[in-house]
Design a binder for these strands. Structure first.
Lengths: 145, 145
DNA sequence: GTCAATGCAAATCGTTTGCATGAAC
DNA sequence: GTTCATGCAAACGATTTGCATTGAC
């Protein structure tokens, strides 16, 4: 687990190293994801920014550009939750998979070392060099049953 | 594994039972998915129909409507492959997961009983009643490395 | 004849792009 | 001052909808 200031510093480092510019907007987007409980869509992030700090405006295009950039430099990760489109989470979190309630939308994160090991195994057997994986279990949660 | 005529009969049964109408279009879409090797998008199915039988026309909207319907009654399943949008496969196939090459798009299907077992376990521990799951391993395949 | 399904075109949604302007360096 | 990032609006691709017509029953 990495602290949030460390991630922001990392962003500054990457931006400088690439000869790019450090902007408030990229920091805001990253900060929101660091402090977010769950997984956010581009639109949700956009709305959060607009409602929280009404003095500074931000364009939805900038949110998308920031998200692509942050994912490219591996500070955040996107996951495609069914039809709902892409959602993002910051990489400050440990790796984990998702249990999703199809009724209320509740998401429980979990991690199973044995599954991870077996996934690597499957990949090896098929001569794939794994870069990432995505695993979601869909069902009905405790309270919704 | 279920035979393709059985699936078509199943479709006829469901349609009748729901008091709906049996149309050639729904049958065509289902048939394409039954006979398809891999996973097809709505657009790919649409193009297949247009090229194969140029006498009968079909609208893209009808393809989408047929796909939603068939998924709803559980004759086909959709999977969201990253940014490429939804793809469909018929439920005649055994359950399996996917290994996806991020370079050439090649998809390898696999099945691991131990992983399945562990998934059920995780669900039980969290009091979820699992309805389905989706698992994709992303990486670079043999020939692309 | 009734009602659902279709085909088409228009509408909508999420996302991306072009371009002039503004901000970081 | 140069160059990258931004904001806006227009463009885009995938999917959905409204509506008049067609086809299954």
């Amino acid at each position: 687990m990495i602290s949030s200031t460390e991630v922001i510093d990392e962003l500054k480092r990457i931006v400088k190293q690439k000869g790019l510019k450090y902007t408030e907007q990229r920091e805001i987007v990253l900060n929101i994801l660091i402090n977010a409980e769950g997984h956010l869509s581009a639109e949700e992030i956009y709305n959060l920014i607009k409602s929280k700090k009404r003095e500074s405006s931000i364009g939805i295009a900038t949110v998308y550009r920031a998200l692509s950039f942050l994912e490219e430099v591996n500070l955040i990760t996107s996951i495609a939750f069914g039809a709902d489109g892409k959602k993002y989470e910051s990489n400050t979190k440990e790796h984990h998979d998702h249990l999703i309630c199809t009724n209320c939308g509740k998401i429980v994160e979990f991690m199973d070392n044995e599954i991870e090991k077996r996934q690597d195994n499957v990949a090896k057997k098929n001569n794939f060099k794994i870069t990432s994986h995505s695993m979601q279990l869909y069902g009905v949660c405790d309270t919704c049953q």
